[in-house]
Simulated scan of single mutants.
Amino acid sequence: MKPPVTIEITARDGEARAGTLDTPHGSVETPTFMPVGTKGTVKGLSREELQDIGAGVVLGNTYHLYFRPGREVVREAGGLHGFTGWDGAMLTDSGGYQVFSLAKTRRISERGVEFASVYDGSVHEFTPELATSVQGDLGADIAMVLDECPPANAPHEYHRDSLRRTARWAERCKEAHAGGDQSLFGIVQGGLFPDLRKESLRLTTDLDFPGYAVGGLSVGESRAEMLEVLEQTAPLLPADKPRYFMGIGDPAGILQVIRLGVDMFDCVLPTRLARHGSVLTRDGRLNLRNARFRRDFSPLDAGCDCPTCAGYSRAYLAHLVREDELLGHRLVTYHNVRFVTRLCEEARGHIRAGDFGAWSETWISRYEGRG
């Protein structure tokens, strides 16, 4: 039986792939950046703005939505689509990232993960079955298995034991998954160790998920280490299924993972940077709090097609940011998210044209000030 979420690859340039991700809530052109809406909202942006930006898939977080507003509320609203009004594709993380980010207040066992709530300190156990069931209530098009994401510097033995437990959890998630209009993706772990990545990949692909994520990267390792692991891992993933890199959102990194065959990726970086007055441009990041922007009446990025660049100057936006005005945060957020979304649009075009490698190297050189 055909799963609810599938991908058709329509063009390749080296390992880079362009295609169409088909979901119950529409088709999404890939490679695609997925804005993160942890608590049911991409910070600062309405659903109408996300549509105008060209976002194809929006993320939600199972851990946070489980606590607030609660799975029952979301289920009664018709899932996240009904609750938020977003009618495009959605993906929910299982809470696996919180296993990493809340390491000081959680305890891992074979059963699952015991958390102290970030909201009131109460203790809750997330099992693979619970994480899968909650994601069923949330109703996103794509759900993720519960996994552990160990820190990059954890020893080989720890990563080995962790990936094997993650594989056992993945099997339990698959058994608990109700199916319907939701696809459940597996996650490959293994840290920076090639032998463990291969073992995790084998254990995970043996479960035959309709899509796969590469996890456990962007968690403290160097960019060179991250890319080396991905270069070894991505080509071994099933070629006819979606490939998802968890947690990358800087423009150079986006192009680098696309080059290695990734179809989907997410990160809070574009929205988080915006809240601190940091802007993504083709010539690198700008910090609007710097004095040099007080009388700079040019747009944030002359090549950008977003309304922020069309209607507001750096000087005005810098003023809003320095004064901590909400409008400033919203306008810069719109720009940053549109910037990475448009970058993916351009990448797709160059993959189809067959010159992605040369184009992306030139683009990265300019962005990093080497052009």
Rank of each mutant, 00 (worst) to 15 (best):
P3L: 07
P4A: 01
P4Y: 02
V5I: 08
D13V: 08
G14N: 11
A16I: 06
A16E: 02
L21S: 09
L21P: 01
T23G: 11
V28R: 00
V28L: 04
E29I: 05
E29K: 11
E29Q: 13
T30P: 02
T32W: 00
T32R: 00
P35K: 07
N61E: 04
H64A: 09
F67I: 05
G70T: 13
G79K: 08
G79E: 09
L80K: 03
T84I: 12
T84P: 13
D87S: 13
A89K: 00
T92H: 12
G95E: 06
G95F: 07
K104N: 13
K104S: 15
R111V: 14
G112Q: 10
A116W: 05
Y119I: 15
Y119V: 15
F126G: 00
L130R: 10
S133G: 01
A143F: 10
T166Q: 02
A170H: 00
E171N: 05
E171A: 14
C173N: 10
K174Q: 14
A178Y: 02
S183G: 05
S183R: 03
L184D: 01
G186L: 09
P194L: 01
L201D: 08
L201I: 10
L203V: 14
P210H: 06
G211S: 02
G211E: 03
Y212P: 01
A213T: 05
G215P: 09
E221Q: 08
S222W: 08
E225M: 10
L230G: 07
Q232D: 15
T233I: 06
A234V: 12
L237M: 15
I248Y: 07
I254F: 04
L255K: 07
L255F: 05
L260N: 06
L260D: 04
D263T: 03
M264T: 11
M264P: 01
V268Q: 06
T271P: 14
D283V: 06
L286A: 01
N287R: 10
R289N: 14
R292K: 14
R295F: 13
D296R: 02
D296K: 01
S298P: 02
S298H: 12
D305A: 15
A310R: 14
Y316A: 05
A318Q: 03
H319T: 09
L320W: 05
E323V: 09
V332G: 04
Y334W: 13
N336A: 12
F339L: 09
T341Q: 13
T341A: 13
E345D: 13
H350R: 15
I351D: 05
R352S: 02
F356Y: 12
G357A: 15
A358Y: 02
W359V: 06
W359M: 07
E361V: 00
E361W: 00
W363K: 13
